[in-house]
Design a protein around this nucleic acid. Structure first.
Length: 829
RNA sequence: GCCUGGAUGGCGGAACUGGUAGACGCGUUGGACUCAAAAUCCAAUUCUCGCAAGGGAGUGAGAGUUCGAUUCUCUCUCCAGGCACCA
């Protein structure tokens, strides 16, 4: 018997335990059902789960449970993205080992997560900071190295003085560290890079198969991030020298408009080409200014100077001066540009400042001169002029033709330039996967052989918070032998960016305890790709790009098949409070713990899904939570009041004659099933829930006639069908309570494992419909009409209506519109 | 500046391929139950004129297409996110 009061605490723990005991969520590869891999972005174990996690996992669990009921073999795993800075900061502040701090947080969060009743296969838990995980990452790194896809280069990097770590460009936000907000400075370090640029084209073309199942904005952001530009590389011979300046341009059609060439200050030739002591002085000044420039700094005026050298125009042979400009970026293209002030706004501004010649070579219309003098560069399309044999060609054709000409003279080549840069993975931190490399004086850079992996993090370390990486300070860690020649050698002390761990964890879930490789191919091939991936949109350009890169790498190395890791992506919005992001500094943090305590997991989950569509921000509103709790209580009470009826055996449907009122209720039941199925499929979870609420409202409404409404045979049948369907449809949203009521209804199996209900189309159809009558597009009347009525009959009916006649007086009928079973519009003038 | 999205009651949000704008929830108001309160149940709730019947306006602003536009087209305003001397 169900108690009168809905007591979530009493039932939630019970069902969580029963699910666990009976391995309801254990996923195996031997099922006859089709597989479904549902994944939420795994959490960083900061200590407590927050509302964002709860929302994320409520969505993932809804999908997982729904798909399970739909007959899929569902895998929903969880793990911990457990390397990272906060653990190290905690180590500095509290003198604990990052490992202990992290594992303790994991234990704590696990308890919280379990109390939410998410259907995880806990046997597949993956913890990235443990050697059994990162040893495979180290193995993969050595493969990157051997294949030439991991390399070292010196370069200027963003350095956070507080975190004492290198930050990726994307980790610098408005000149400040994305984690601690300290201002970022530039530092010169030797770093490890992964050659993601080698996959730029594939990362871009791979979007084709994601076009329909990933949010457009994520695809757009990635596209922008990769930044493909079609163009060419063109060589300018330096006058009186063997040196060549190679430039990249997207506008080879403007080649004849080149009046000078501009180099970045850091360009390798810049120093050599400076002919005067004055120029060298200028070069130093600009170098320093560019290095000190903050990433977000706005540049008002372009600065530069003439080197004193000249370059030879590849087609005209003209002498053009070589300048250095602070607006030319060394990291993009070749670090040198051909300047066409007439058709590039930056070159135009530069030319104005230093009074350099401007030569128009593209005009909007044939036989027309360029505007003189110009106010700004003309960057539109048009026809070539002053361009030798290319005169008169439209500029798009000329792009191809000019490059062809250059190619035939071996002075240029058609290329594609990407904005994407290689991924710097070195971190001067302790709490990360050590990069498995040894530096030997005779053998050079040597990867640690697989038999010697993992390179484990030592336990005996001290954290001062100063002078960078504790691994460097460690007495023995860096002292090792060369794997090749056994001589004394130095071990790499940099660890890997934590994004490396999260780039392949989804594949590890398919075989989390594999000790012979990152995972067995057969298992990965069975489960992958991830069918449904849920997480924050903030990972659009980093994690989601790196994972796609790794997937393609792993495919090319034969570890798995398939081109893309995540078939479908849902980017969920943030949880905010009173219009602002929840944060400790604002003091508006509501923790899931307090909500779980007061209302239970089912209410918390239901609210997370009901309050907003998943992709939008969700404003946390206590009253709204109460509303969801009230709804669950309403379901409970409905059940409680009729529990003896509901527990009775159901008679055959054909033995019952249903009253009109019961038929209407049955229609609502099947409408709900249809609506919920469609809305879940189309990710409109908030609307799905409202359908269940509508059914409950109608059931209560039936009771207002008389409280024994459901006692008649047809009433009882109708109620049983409605409640049965309701429990099934709500099971993915509020699983504990539905499990309890399902059990009380006399079912011996889990509702979690039941089949998703099917709606009966024959019960949804009605013989009548509401005809909306409009006059000149304004609603004037509504009337119940039998379906199948002809247009003629409708017109007769409508024109004879008392409500309609007055609108027609003194006017003539111009048109009569009838949309079958919807609307009639009388058009009069 | 460029690229994406958005803009609907007091609030969160619904609305099929152009066809009843405001589902569902919150809040508010009224009623029932109660000695009373809470809880619960019922009803009303876009604004506006009206005792009412009924009328008028209404989906950021302005135009257009249409019998009919939240939905399609154009222009503009504002908001959010992303990118930015990228050649």
């Amino acid at each position: 018997m169900v108690s009168e009061k809905y007591d979530p605490k009493g039932i939630e723990g019970k069902w969580q335990q029963l699910w666990a005991e009976q391995n309801v969520f254990k996923a195996t590869e031997d099922s006859p059902k089709p597989k479904y891999f549902c994944l939420c972005m795994f959490p960083y174990p900061s200590g407590n789960i927050h509302m964002g996690h709860m929302r994320n996992y409520s969505i993932g669990d809804l999908i997982s449970r729904y798909k399970r009921m739909k007959g899929f073999n569902v895998l929903q795993p969880i793990g911990w993205d457990s390397f990272g800075l906060p653990a190290e900061n905690a180590a500095i502040q509290r003198s604990v080992h990052p490992r202990d701090w992290t594992l303790q947080n994991i234990a704590q969060m696990k308890v919280e997560l379990k109390s939410m009743g998410i259907g995880y296969d806990w046997d597949r838990e993956v913890t990235t900071c443990l050697p059994e995980y990162y040893r495979w990452e180290q193995m993969l790194f050595t493969k990157f190295f051997e294949k030439g896809l991991a390399y070292k280069k010196r370069g200027q990097v963003n350095w956070c003085p507080k975190c004492e770590t290198v930050l990726a460009n994307e980790q610098v936000q408005e000149g400040a560290c994305w984690r601690c907000d300290s201002p970022v400075v530039v530092k010169d370090l030797s770093q490890w890079y992964l050659k993601i640029t080698a996959y730029a084209d594939q990362l871009l073309s791979g979007h084709q198969q994601l076009e329909k199942s990933w949010p457009q904005r994520v695809l757009d952001m990635q596209k922008h991030w990769i930044g493909e530009s079609q163009g060419g590389r063109i060589q300018f011979q330096v006058e009186g020298s063997q040196e060549k300046i190679e430039i990249f341009t997207t506008r080879p059609d403007t080649l004849f408009g080149v009046t000078f060439v501009t180099l970045a200050a850091a360009h390798p030739l810049a120093q050599k080409l400076c002919k005067t002591p004055d120029a060298l002085k200028h070069l130093e000044q600009i170098k320093v200014a560019v290095a000190l420039r903050r990433p977000d700094e706005e540049i008002k005026e372009k600065k530069g100077f003439f080197t004193g050298s000249y370059a030879i125009h590849p087609l005209t042979g003209a002498k053009v001066p070589v300048w250095v400009g602070d607006f030319v970026v060394m990291e993009y293209g070749t670090g040198a540009v051909m300047a066409v002030p007439a058709h590039d706004q930056r070159d135009f501004e530069f030319a104005q400042t230093y009074q350099l010649p401007i030569k128009t070579v593209i005009v909007p219309n044939k036989d027309e001169g360029g505007a003189q003098p110009m106010k700004e560069a003309y960057t539109g399309s048009g026809f070539l002029t002053e361009s030798g044999s290319f005169n008169g060609q439209d500029n798009e054709t000329a792009k191809t033709n000019i490059l062809k000409e250059l190619e035939s003279k071996k002075l240029g080549i058609k290329t594609i330039q990407y904005r994407l840069r290689d991924w710097g993975v070195s971190r001067q931190r302790f709490w990360g996967a050590p990069i498995p490399i040894v530096y030997c004086e005779s053998c050079g850079t040597v990867p640690v052989p697989e038999k010697d992996l993992p390179v484990e993090l030592p336990m005996d370390v001290t954290f001062s918070g100063k002078q960078g990486n504790p691994l460097e300070q460690h007495p023995t860690f860096s002292k090792t032998q060369c794997p090749k020649c056994q001589k004394t050698a130095r071990r790499e002390t940099d660890t890997m960016d934590t994004f490396v761990e999260s780039s392949w964890y989804y594949a590890r879930y398919t075989d989390p305890h594999c000790s012979t490789g990152p995972f067995a191919k057969a298992k990965a091939d069975y489960w992958l790709p991830v069918d449904y991936y849920v997480g924050g949109v903030e990972h659009a350009c980093m994690h989601l790009l790196y994972s796609r890169f790794f997937h393609k790498i792993l495919r090319d190395w034969g570890f798995l098949k398939g081109d893309e890791p995540f078939s479908r992506l849902l980017t969920q919005g943030m949880v905010i409070k009173d219009g602002a992001k929840m944060s400790k500094s604002k003091g508006n943090v509501v923790t899931p713990g307090s909500i779980l305590d007061r209302f239970g997991a089912d209410t918390a989950r239901l609210f997370s899904l009901f309050a907003a569509p998943p992709e939008k921000d969700l404003d946390w509103n206590e009253k709204g939570v109460e509303g969801c709790h009230r709804f669950l209580q309403r379901v409970w009470r409905l059940f409680y009041q009729h529990q003896s009826l509901l527990a009775e055996a159901q008679v055959a449907e054909k033995e019952i004659t249903f009253s009109d009122k019961c038929l209407a209720l049955r229609r609502k039941t099947h409408w709900m099933i249809q609506k919920m199925t469609e809305d879940i499929e189309s990710e409109k979870f908030n609307v799905a829930i409202s359908a269940a609420m509508e059914l409950v409202n109608e059931l209560y409404g039936a009771l207002t006639d008389h409280d024994k409404f459901f006692s008649t045979p047809d009433g009882k049948w109708t109620l049983q069908e409605a409640v049965h369907s309701l429990l099934l449809c709500l099971a993915p949203f509020a699983p504990h309570m539905m499990e309890e009521l399902w059990h009380e209804m006399g079912n011996k199996t889990f509702v979690t494992c039941a089949d998703w209900p099917k709606f009966r189309a024959d019960l949804l159809t009605e013989s009548k419909f509401t005809l909306v009558v409009q006059v000149n597009g304004k609603v004037r009347e509504r009337i119940e009409v039998a379906k199948g009525i002809t247009k003629e009959d409708v017109q007769k009916l409508v024109l004879g209506m008392d409500k309609i006649k007055p609108f027609m007086e003194g006017k003539t009928l111009k048109q009569f519109v009838y949309v079958p079973e919807r609307i009639a519009n009388v058009v009069v003038v």
